[in-house]
Write a protein that binds this DNA or RNA. Structure first.
Lengths: 191, 191
DNA sequence: CTTTCAAAGCTAATCGTATTAGCTTTTGGC
DNA sequence: GCCAAAAGCTAATACGATTAGCTTTGAAAG
């Protein structure tokens, strides 16, 4: 191997994530990123194709982290599907609140280039789907899953963009809403 | 009045919205916008402070449009609060699907500068709140409202960013989910 | 030990975009 | 006809992404 690399690709992505969380995506410039490694901006091109693929990688990393975090949270959770779903919801929300900038980068843009890797999306949906199946049955699982994801994601996005102006414990509201949603699927309804 | 203006501020904002819908926000450049009016980019600064305030104005316009659209849809709606809520949800979703780029600009960024004018947010929440009050009562109205908004907004954002990979009628799923959510609030539950 | 060569850096340059400064043109009201 | 201010324009600056082409380093081959 020639010339000892100052840059490890994993570290590069993590550093990018950190910078994004510190000052927002708009503030992430290749110059600033390069500074963190004591190199010049153009040298970064030896490690990534361009800024877009870097952000893609950041999204993949964030998604993988989220999947792991949720899986871990389930290990210590009860057996009750509803409790497990609540746990996932709480963990999801906590994650988004902990990494607001990278979380919203995950879904905030319509740019197809930044779209979350379908495989990660799949892995994200899976545990949710398992419990949904147990709660509402196979026929409704996909629909119920999508709605739950929408509720959770939407809540978190509105919370992050400070759209819940009128105060109150958002944590409580979040659980109330999620529980109401699940209750709704358990209540008799037309097919 | 001096020098016949080529630019009317309302038209400017609408043109910006159109360009954003046509090619995405990233593609909206002051140069391209100026071209639409047959003037040079720097001349735009006679009409707007900078690009950020322009985008702010775009958001305000989009928000106002959304509020109007929802209000109009309610005029021909039934008296049943649940039906009215469903109508609002459908209208909201249709609006977002019709103006995907500007809709996601509304909430897609964490940038406080682009945050939706609280007054518009208020006007948006009001009709939803009225029906919620009728459905779940005053004590729960705020929580139920927030959850409904989260569900609707989240669904639309996931749909726009193509996260619902597995097909099926999203329109149906959307209504199922919203109905389930409302049903949940109507079902007995702990305070 | 020397040579070789590819990876990883660097500098210089290009291009696109936002924004500012300062000049010019137009025209309603005098 | 004159003039002030609005609306345009050109030129210039700054910054960020990206490319081209040169240089350095160090492991491995001889």
């Amino acid at each position: 191997m020639p010339y000892p690399s100052q840059v490890d690709i994993e570290t590069l992505i993590d550093t990018a994530r950190t910078l994004i969380e510190q000052s927002g995506v708009e503030q992430l410039t290749l110059q600033r990123l390069a500074d963190e490694f004591g190199i010049k901006a153009p040298s970064l091109y030896k490690h990534v194709k361009n800024k877009t693929t870097l952000l893609q990688a950041v999204n993949t990393r964030t998604g993988a982290l989220l999947v792991n975090t949720i899986q871990e949270s389930l290990e210590s959770a009860s057996d009750d599907p509803i409790q497990r779903l609540l746990t996932m919801g709480r963990t999801y929300r906590d994650f988004a609140l902990q990494y607001p900038a990278t979380y919203s980068l995950l879904y905030g843009t319509l740019n197809p280039e930044l779209r979350l890797d379908p495989q990660i999306a799949e892995a994200l949906a899976l545990p949710l789907q398992v419990e949904m199946m147990a709660i509402v049955g196979e026929a409704n699982a996909l629909a119920a899953l999508r709605g739950a994801w929408a509720l959770i994601h939407g809540f978190v996005m509105l919370e992050l963009s400070q759209q819940f102006q009128r105060g109150g414990s958002l944590e409580t509201v979040f659980e109330q809403a999620l529980l109401a949603y699940l209750r709704g699927w358990l209540t008799p309804h037309a097919p």
